[in-house]
């Protein structure tokens, strides 16, 4: 893998993107044995506002913990996409929600315009697992982490009793890209 791989998960507060970043980073750091650092940036809102969570993945030690040249960006809202896509590097991957993000940024990106929220709502049955659906898609596109290890990390973090729902959400997200 590349020396340093930067992932940014963006959307609005309450969409579970901080947790999504934590799960992805745990899958990488604890189960793949590769270095990962997770950070977040947030405003005063507990819900709403633009929110981002970042995961830096590297074979080497990670000094600067924030993303500057993003390899993979997830955006679940238009506001987040507009605000956070500026750091996406040329040739990078953009995963944008089909319903929420209608205007895609111009540039040389590999774009995956996916029905993440709709899949969560209609196929998984709960809109609040959109973050896990998104994780499934990310896992399908990342070389550094297997879907099995992401699932392990998901099950470690989600509330008891929601394991099947989350497992299904993850699989549905994975299917969107594979």
């Amino acid at each position: 893998m590349a020396q340093r791989y930067e992932v940014r998960l963006s959307g609005s507060g309450g969409q579970g993107l901080v947790l999504g970043g934590v799960i992805l980073a745990e899958a990488v750091a604890l189960f793949e044995g590769i270095n990962a650092v997770q950070t977040q940036s947030y405003g005063p809102e507990a819900r709403g506002g633009a929110s981002k969570s970042e995961v830096i993945i590297s074979d080497e030690s990670i000094d600067y913990p924030k993303a500057t040249k993003i390899d993979l960006l997830l955006s679940l809202t238009q506001e987040a996409c507009d605000k956070y896509s500026v750091d996406l590097k040329e040739g990078g991957i953009l995963i944008a929600d089909k319903r929420m993000v209608t205007k895609l940024p111009e540039g040389n990106y590999k774009v995956y315009h996916l029905p993440i929220i709709d899949t969560a709502k209609e196929k998984a049955g709960k809109v609040f697992v959109a973050n896990i659906v998104a994780l499934g898609a990310i896992a399908g596109l990342l070389d550094s982490v297997s879907i099995e290890n992401v699932e392990k990390a998901v099950l470690q973090r989600v509330p008891k009793g929601t394991e099947n729902l989350n497992r299904r959400a993850l699989a549905l997200g994975y299917e969107l890209v594979t």
């Binding site: 980073a25 750091a29 270095n35 990962a36 650092v37 997770q38 950070t39 977040q40 913990p65």
Partner: peptide, 9 residues
Amino acid sequence: EIIGHMREK
């Protein structure tokens, strides 16, 4: 705030 909220193994 950065290292307080940052997660690492």
